[in-house]
Write a protein that binds this DNA or RNA. Sequence first.
DNA 1: GCCGTTTTCGGCCCGACTGTTTTCAGTCG
Length: 580
Amino acid sequence: MVLNDKSAVVKALRDMGLLKQIKGENSFKTRAYEIAAERIAGVSDDIGELVSKGKLTELPGIGESMAAKITELVTTGKIAALEELRAEFPPAMLELLQVPELGPKKAKILHEQLQVGSIDQLEAACKAQRVRGLKGFGQKTEEKLLAAIEVARRSSSGSRRRLSQVLPKAQKLLAQIKTAPGVVRASLGGSVRRMRETVADVDLIVSAADPGPIFKQLTAMSEVAQVLGQGESKASVRLYDADGDLQVDLRVLPDEDFATALHHFTGSKAHHIRLRSLAIERGLKISEWGVHRGEEKLKITTEDDIYALLDMDPVPPELREDWGEIEAALEHRLPKDLITEQDVVGNVHAHTTWSDGRNSLEEMARTAQAMGLKYLTVTEHSQTAGYAGGLKEEDLKRQWDEIDAVNEKLKGFTLLKGVESDILEDGRLDYPDSFLSKLDVVICSIHQRHSQNEEQMTKRMLAAFDNPFFMIWGHPTGRLLLKREPAPMRMEQILDKAAERGITIEVNGSPERLDLSAEHVRLALQRKLKLVVSTDAHSVSELHDHLPYAVGTARKGWARKGDILNARPVKDFKAGLRLH
DNA sequence: GCCGTTTTCGGCCCGACTGTTTTCAGTCG
């Protein structure tokens, strides 16, 4: 095995599909590559294992030909057919498709007629007014492309941004839209509603008899930089935004169409394609405008009605990715009790002014209590983390006195004594066992030496799990979304050992982390590992603000209430942390 | 390229919007 890298496989399949599109191949063929890429991206299995065990063709959407290409890539490091395809085009050909408004058909014409093979060449051709003469192009297209090139360049660092950079703005927009006259129902849609860890735009779906005032409400907002388009049922705008351009798509429909429209614009695309095929088998047709049986339009009041018509369990938005939820819903084995924010009774992983937090112990405790919680784990940084005000044994012992004093004052609320201990480069923790044994909660995290290779990192974790006081594995991969890749490690092997040792895994809700990821949450749950949804709060506001991201990520990984330790009362929480 | 209690051949999700168009193609979601 030369290249056991799932993301490399996904990229190769996507690129192959796109290049074939530009060549003008049959669109169903090219879509097969997209489907296969999405399927691989969504499976939680190790790609090398799928190849070596010959299980690729068991995945829906992957047949003999696709399996052979994937096997070729994993075993030899490249796909000959893809190399040949690449050789037919300039190296930067695919970057052209990053330009909005420019798809494979127009790219093909530009390449064939004007030898355009990069964004820079496209810009030159447009400025020279050589594009407007091409068949199917005109002056307006040329001008639009020039503007689109700017958009593509501005967002070239990746047009997606972290969910946390968009969700609060989206919620604010939704609140403002709801104040427009005539609004009946309104909701967020799209990848924001599905709680994807990174998102590209905002979708708003509104029902009202007259769309006019709603469009007006949106386009009149001061944050709107440009109105990109407006028709009878939808409008798109671009917002001024410190993080770069943010597109907002607003749909307004009669209330009888709200549920089907909301469902349609929530996605994902892959989920819909599967669902609509199933509908056809049952003599139904699903579109954004409703569910039809022949000419008859069926009455759909909620999204659940759509799944009921297909004899499926209702699928919560976070699960709509075609990651196996379709099959599970058809077999009525979709989890019914996914974790919710209301289920959480204890806040896990908090820092105070004792280390690098911004609020005192008592402020954190009172805020958590006001949120309706019953306990809070105080887990300051450990002595190795000098940069974060890490505490020595004597410091922590003094902190216990203050914790005892605050616990005296608070009724029906408990501060638990803990620490976030660094996992050193050889897997040791940075306090002696004799001290760790005195704590209620020991979260163990990696804060340095992220650059170890896969072998070293895997060994480090396996060794760390041998410590009898290792209770919770904190932000396991150390990733920072769009900033730092997850540390390389053999996650399946590590989770196997964690399960053996009875270790609890953190789903860290710090918006830059979301660590574990939803995909890894599923891997952990397959091994019956216990989880905590944590805030990693460094201030009272983060106690509130981070919880939705932890819960959303856990839900997206199919975690149920029973899987989450801090959905249990304090006594059961403490008991659950003990190793077997 | 994938897939099959309507098929191993002949289908493959569906519609809005825009611009180039006298009836449609391309792009997007």
